[in-house]
């Protein structure tokens, strides 16, 4: 079976799955967001800045970002996912942290921590990217100083086609080579904050795939922006309120 069209019926190889984003979904968190892309759903909750314990982990120069990526037991398509931290979750937590840190400026909050919890109730490939997209909305919702949002998407190659936003079926394609490249970038400058790869791809194709990722990230950024503006809609245009005393 040759790979000639998208398995899930998308028209083009550069089409994204349907995306839904919402800010402020968890009222008790300082910031939160939902990001759904196709059948992958990510919830991100932000708590902080808050006191960091144990004390030796504190940094007197700046606040610390701490991310946690967690696939829920019933989230996968196959076997039950064993709950708790594992090698994969630790790696993804770490790369998420490194993908988000370049936009954040926590220097006003020394000795504190900002906790980001990413929970995935349902996954169908692209979960680390969905997690990063959700986390960046949640961090903005939490009112933290950040110079940009982070948009993330997986691109890659299935058989001989360059593809954007692979789903699990495409990622698991067995009759030809597959490359899966999760990318995170800052839409305003085009800088990359995450670039990983599983599989093999030619150098020229990699550059082409990254170009595709850029377009996709700009689309995602618009969706993230709309989600945030939607939450705070109706608060614009107000006068400045009174004095505090």
């Amino acid at each position: 079976m040759a790979y000639t069209k998208r398995f899930d019926g998308r028209k083009s190889f550069s089409d994204l799955r349907p995306i839904e984003a919402k800010a402020g979904v968890v009222p008790r968190a300082h910031g939160s967001a939902l990001f759904r892309i196709g059948n992958t759903i990510a919830y991100a909750t932000v708590y902080g800045p808050r006191e960091l314990h144990p004390k030796f982990m504190q940094n007197p120069k700046t606040g610390v970002l701490r991310c946690s990526y967690n696939m829920m037991p019933f989230s996968g398509a196959g076997e039950r996912v064993k709950p708790g931290p594992n090698r994969r979750a630790k790696e993804i937590s770490l790369v998420t942290e490194k993908a988000l840190l370049p936009v954040l400026d926590l220097s006003d909050y020394p000795n504190t921590v900002v906790d980001v919890f990413i929970d995935l109730p349902q996954t169908d490939a692209g979960s680390r990217c969905a997690g990063i997209c959700a986390a960046s909305i949640a961090l903005a919702d939490a009112g933290l100083p950040m110079k940009d949002l982070v948009a993330a998407i997986a691109v890659g190659k299935v058989d001989d086609k360059l593809v954007v936003d692979l789903d699990y079926q495409e990622e698991a394609y067995e009759d030809g080579p597959v490359a899966d490249i999760p990318v995170a970038m800052l839409p305003s400058t085009g800088e990359y904050t995450l670039l990983q790869m599983d599989g093999d791809i030619h150098k020229d194709e990699l550059y082409k795939a990254l170009e595709l990722a850029k377009d996709a990230c700009n689309k995602i950024y618009e969706i993230q922006k709309t989600a945030l503006k939607e939450k705070y809609k109706g608060q614009e245009g107000g006068d400045e309120g009174g004095d505090v005393e």
């Binding site: 903005a140 950040m146 110079k147 949002l149 839409p187 305003s188 922006k225 809609k233 245009g237 107000g238």
Partner: peptide, 11 residues
Amino acid sequence: DKAIVVPGELL
């Protein structure tokens, strides 16, 4: 003026 803006938005 007085619009809601998000991080990274061109002002």
